[in-house]
């Protein structure tokens, strides 16, 4: 179980201490020590099979692990609120479930077969509108495109009023434009709602533009810190073997916490 105690004073939202995961004798994660700073955007990068999703699963308490995950507690309640946007939602696409049903099933206790609460509908539509997804409200969830589904999943996660937003490969299966729009929206919402963002990303340009902290992972922590400190030639080689030179280190922002891209204006 994640231990919840007051760690907000030291500026960390999540602390992973000595996290190890062993599945069928294979070391998936080996003594991970990492922190996720509060209110910032932290990216976990690493090759396939590096244990990125596994690390998130320890945070969500979905798999057995050794070590401790400490999540900050907050003044307005002992329970932390997590919003989660999974990588690919594997679900039954034939389910007769509209986007609005999907949002409401989470927001009201009354069963959907006894109708929808007007307040819950208004609130869901408001969140969808913020993510430019209000037109999707009456569409079947199985009929959405990859990018549309990502926005709806983000809307559901934001409906939790999260203190911590976890995203697993938010841009997977989305084209460049879709990804740009998604990142822009995410950045806007983060500034507005003030949550901590923790995301896995394969896409190093996205990471360099959006993350304020990077955790380089390949079964153990290779490096952690600002993008400029961590995404070095040595670390990328250690993680990916031969890397494709996709990161232009000179193009990285000088100040670790400021990115000047239009989609990423940190306040």
């Amino acid at each position: 179980m994640p231990i919840i105690e007051n760690i907000s004073n030291c500026g960390a939202e999540v602390i992973f201490s000595d996290i190890s995961v062993n599945i069928a004798g294979v070391h998936i994660l080996d003594k991970i020590n990492a922190t996720v700073p509060k209110g910032e955007c932290t990216a976990i990068v690493g090759p396939n099979g590096a244990g990125k999703t596994t690390l998130l699963m320890t945070l969500l308490n979905e798999i057995p692990y050794t070590g401790t995950v400490t999540i900050a507690s907050y003044e307005h309640g002992p329970k932390h609120r997590i919003g989660y946007v999974p990588q690919r939602l594997s679900f039954d696409r034939g389910m007769p479930l509209t986007v609005l049903d999907f949002m409401i099933m989470d927001a009201q206790i009354r069963p959907l077969w006894l109708g929808k609460n007007k307040k819950a509908v208004a609130k869901a539509l408001e969140i969808l509108a913020q993510l430019h997804a209000e037109k999707l409200a009456n569409r079947k969830i199985g009929a959405l495109s990859g990018g549309e589904l990502q926005r709806v999943l983000l809307a559901l996660a934001l409906q939790q009023k999260p203190e911590l937003l976890i995203l697993d490969e938010p841009a997977a299966g989305v084209d460049f434009k879709g990804e740009y729009i998604f990142c822009e929206l995410l950045e806007k919402m983060r500034k507005q709602m003030g949550f901590t963002q923790l995301m896995i990303s394969h896409d190093l340009p996205t990471v360099t533009h959006h993350a304020t902290k990077v955790i380089c992972l390949n079964r153990k922590v290779i490096a952690q810190g600002s993008p400029k400190e961590t995404l070095t030639h040595e670390n990328l080689t250690a993680m990916f073997g031969i890397h494709m030179g996709m990161i232009d280190l000179k193009a990285l922002p000088n100040n670790d916490k400021i990115c000047n891209e239009s989609c990423c204006k940190h306040g």
């Binding site: 979905e62 997590i82 989660y84 479930l97 049903d101 999907f102 559901l156």
Partner: peptide, 13 residues
């Protein structure tokens, strides 16, 4: 419905 859609997502929420 939530669990039927995706149990991990339901647990996280």
């Amino acid at each position: 419905l939530y669990i039927g859609l995706n149990p991990s997502l339901a647990t996280a929420h």
